[in-house]
């Protein structure tokens, strides 16, 4: 009996030495991930900053690098070319690139309401799209401002207003002609231009395309199909960390501003970042469902609009342009 016990103890100890006390596994090197931002560092990307500052990326064994966007940066192209692994991309560009056969795919909607709005002076009498007739509207443009023109046209079409009755001029990010009164209506992002205009002290009426049935997403998180097929685990981990960062940013926007100020170039511009963050809240968190959640009908609506505007080179299955796989996986399938 005693001998049996001795053998048993030795066996257990051997097991502990072999499996428990053996050479420790070297920690796996973190996955280096590059995120292409849509614009320069600002609170618009607060959720990603929060994820980084709170260690959510590190927890997922991800080493993140933020690539700033800009006037001349092709955001979608950066992701497609694998210069960046993920990108904060306008959904219109995802659809346009897919129509060109480029495998961009949205994995989450950050701005689940479009930040595009049209501003008119408060005393102009312009309170709805019908009032745009005969007015000068600064909305035309390419690149980052393409969605202004797109949503304007979609809105007018939906309201059966002849677009030709509008004097559409190029969008001016400085709003000089709007300030001077030469422009009656200007497109602007609610999270950017509108803040800038109001900061000037101007009283404005806001006309939201969404109020007239134009439901677009603004910022979406996109990657490539190859990334998803080759490294779905990394995509899931990146999503989990990023969405947690956004959740934190939305739940405490003041802290998000503080964190964002670590990244922005003008670190003194706390007011603008705070205003941007406050403006973002209802766009990111709509009160309907989980942050990042996407609705097929909105993708279909966006696709239809682009197709209608002739911006898509060829039709394709819009349901291939987005995937709910990862948002569902990280949320356990819960909508809210």
């Amino acid at each position: 009996m005693k001998k049996t016990m001795t053998v048993l103890i030795l066996f257990i100890l051997s097991g502990i030495i072999l499996f428990g006390c053996g050479r420790p596994q070297p920690p796996k090197a973190p996955d280096e991930v590059k995120l292409q931002l849509k614009w320069l560092h600002q609170a618009q990307f607060a959720g990603f900053y929060m994820a980084q500052e709170k260690g959510y990326y590190a927890k997922e064994n991800i080493k993140i690098t933020f690539l700033e966007g800009g006037q001349d940066v092709d955001i979608a192209g950066s992701v497609v070319s694998r210069k960046a692994d993920f990108g904060v991309v306008t959904p219109e560009y995802i659809l346009i690139n897919r129509s060109r056969g480029l495998p961009l795919i949205a994995i989450a909607a950050i701005y689940r309401r479009s930040a595009v709005a049209f501003a008119a002076r408060a005393n102009s009498g312009i309170v709805r799209p019908a009032d745009f007739k005969g007015k000068t509207v600064a909305a035309a443009g390419k690149g980052g401002s393409m969605e202004f023109d797109l949503q304007l046209r979609a809105m007018m079409k939906k309201l059966k207003i002849d677009i030709l009755k509008l004097n559409i001029i190029p969008y001016d990010p400085e709003y000089a002609s709007f300030y001077s009164g030469k422009t009656d209506v200007t497109a602007a992002y609610y999270t950017g231009g509108i803040i800038k205009i109001r900061k000037k002290g101007m009283k404005i009426n806001l006309i939201w395309p969404e109020d007239y049935g134009i439901n677009f997403y603004s910022d979406t998180l996109a990657t490539t199909e190859k990334m998803i097929s080759d490294n779905p685990d990394l995509v899931e981990r990146f999503m989990r960390a990023s969405m947690q960062g956004w959740q934190d940013a939305i739940e405490d926007y003041r802290q998000a501003v503080v964190v964002s100020l670590k990244y922005v170039h003008d670190k003194e511009d706390s007011d603008t970042q705070t205003a941007m963050m406050e403006a973002m809240l209802p766009l990111v968190h709509t009160g309907e469902d989980r942050i990042g959640w996407m609705k097929p009908e909105i993708w279909h609506e966006m696709y239809g609009t682009l197709l209608d505007q002739g911006l898509l080179e060829k039709p394709f299955d819009v349901d291939q342009a987005y995937t709910m796989r990862f948002i569902k996986e990280i949320s356990g399938g819960k909508v809210k």
């Binding site: 709805r128 309201l159 009426n205 939201w208 969404e210 109020d211 209802p282 009160g287």
Partner: peptide, 30 residues
């Protein structure tokens, strides 16, 4: 200013067609 705005996707519209309905507090960008 609200005249003409489309509310077809709002829950209070969808549910309001059937019964008296109250939609909880939400932030209206509009």
């Amino acid at each position: 200013k609200q005249d003409g705005k489309l509310r077809d996707t709002r829950r209070y519209f969808i549910e309001g067609k059937k019964r008296t309905y109250i939609e909880g507090s939400y932030y209206s960008p509009s």
